[in-house]
Design a protein around this nucleic acid. Structure first.
Lengths: 201, 201, 201, 201
DNA sequence: TATGAATGAGCTTTCATTCAT
DNA sequence: CATGAATGAAAGCTCATTCAT
């Protein structure tokens, strides 16, 4: 990409980023058309290619931007002293909700990359995918798991919670009217139920 | 579609069905190319269109076929006298594994339709989607939930399990070497953990 | 073409000929599809190609057949002793009407070849076109033109009448319900008017 | 169609229009290929579809354009005070010749639409066809028919002249070297002959 | 920096023709 | 003699990318 992009007015940068996030999140790499992105962003075709060289360049950039932005949110919003398993989960979800204030389609876009199938697109984001995973890994490692009863397999518990959080967000997006607060409340209910089920008697 | 398709040798029918399931599951409606399907099936371009009229026709047909096939598997493989919550889940997963013997990409294809974004494709399968959901609904209604402790919200529990089963299968597919038996074993482990967590003390 | 075609039952031959005449007349060479011809004739695809080798073969054959048939009609139906300009015209039109009893689309097909644009099709019928023109030439040469006043240019008169007869038939076909008798009556009216206009005072 | 087409250099617009007129006039709707049009116009495939959306869009546009252009020619070139039957005919033919200076295939294209068979093409131009017919109707209604003798049926006379004018133009086109002046001269000869035949004695 | 007209490779679909039965 | 499943070249159309302005 062309780094002069960052010299543009922040508002214009975000318009372009949000347009790309939305179109890629909704249609996947192949289904997204540069015409749609350009229209949504209110800029010309030439400009998009001027800054990002190719469709793949746009995709790579917004993935990079999203992971960095989300990493920042997670590292600043999650209390470094906290060690409670479910409390950390709640703070993670809260951080995501916060990110959605500026970039409503960012999380949805990040989830969509999991199902991405176009190999060139996958290849281009591979490395940065790992980086975000590591951030989550660090947060997970801070979680205290000693409170759980013997029948709890921590890895399985985590995977179930991750899949559930993701599933709930996707459901909310699919149903159209996405409201961060309502989603957060529903997520918290699931976490609370799991807390009560897993506590040592 | 052209019903003469069913007069073809079963082996050829299945080659075409499996090719379409694979390409659509891997690439989504838009990303899938009829060239790829035709190549995978080892038939000519013209023949595909002779039987299915259009790309959308192929998509609609294999969705219809998949829901009917899966419905049959579920109704024959799940014991009608069984009422145990987790046992029914296991038999459902077992039925899916059985279907994958003949149609390895069928379940993956069915899952992929949830993320489908192309509106014409969505519209074409809408009705049949509901039908399969109802089959699952019937099975779910047979599950005995009275054994659970007060802290268990059955709906939430179900959604977590559904999302987890789906997540596990997708993970196995994503990692390439898909082995039904191994997947089934892993799924059973998750179900067993949840059984031990939810039983009344 | 394969001459064994003539060994078929006359009824089947005519079914094939009429199907081809209809489809080619209605759609032109390019627009006509062998599928349509085959369906209209109630025979299989293979059979059409067995007898006529190619689409162009079918076209060439029915053009050949039509010119020969029409030549026969003209030579037998037009009175060889007749020399009156307009009476001969009427007998010509009457002969055409007679042909349409067995082959309703034959004349329409012959007219359509005038507008034919596909060069290979044109090339294939070129020679036979001339032959039919000559038959008309012979009939025209028998017409007595000495009755006309000085202001009549016989060549121009003939061209006007030819174009009018053709125009009237096309109009009748375009308007759907084609009835030979009604058309013939209308044609006769035009001829009568021209007779009264051209007679020496 | 995309109205930005009219922002293009007039020369380019006309190149595209003339290319389409030529290819459609020569081959009919079905037989005309967009590849040929594009090659004749010296533009790319994409551009044609950018401006006209579809093959049918091109067809509809040039029909619309042709009827409007021809209407303008007729209303400006035919003397509004003139009432002589044959003189008006001559001015009509003169107007056509004038149009052919800029758009050599326009009249030929308009004639070709009469034989059009593809239903979607017919449907798309239906309304505008009527509009041009009305313009001719107005001109015809101005023609003084009281000079004719009793044996003249004005409607029949008109139809013969129309069919003859059309037939002559088609003949000239078919024979390749189309020269408006020569055609006009020939047409005038026919009209003069008919004038002398139809005048009251 | 910014535009959008223009390109052409690639995709879906059609249809004359072939050939095993 | 008769069938119709099967083929693949060609046609209509899309869209990422380029480039003159």
């Amino acid at each position: 990409m062309n780094s002069k992009f960052f010299d543009l007015a922040k508002e214009k940068q975000d318009r372009m980023i949000n347009a790309a996030l939305k179109i890629f999140a909704k249609n996947g790499y192949k289904g997204a058309s540069t015409d749609e992105i350009v229209k949504e962003a209110g800029i010309s075709k030439g400009l998009l290619f001027h800054y990002f060289v190719s469709k793949l360049g746009v995709y790579t950039f917004i993935f990079d931007y999203s992971t960095k932005y989300m990493t920042l949110e997670l590292t600043t919003s999650v209390d470094k002293e906290e060690s409670d398993f479910f409390e950390i989960y709640k703070q993670i979800e809260s951080a995501k909700m916060h990110a959605l204030k500026n970039y409503p389609y960012m999380q949805e876009f990040l989830y969509s990359t999991v199902y991405e199938d176009v190999s060139e697109a996958l290849l281009a984001i591979e490395d940065k995918k790992t980086a975000l995973t590591e951030v989550y890994g660090d947060l997970y490692s801070r979680m205290n798991t000693e409170v759980f009863g013997a029948e709890v397999d921590t890895e399985k518990l985590r995977k179930m919670i991750d899949l559930t959080m993701k599933g709930l967000m996707e459901e909310h997006f699919r149903e159209g009217s996405f409201q961060p607060e309502m989603l957060f409340k529903e997520e918290a209910d699931y976490l609370d139920m799991m807390r009560s089920l897993t506590m040592k008697v």
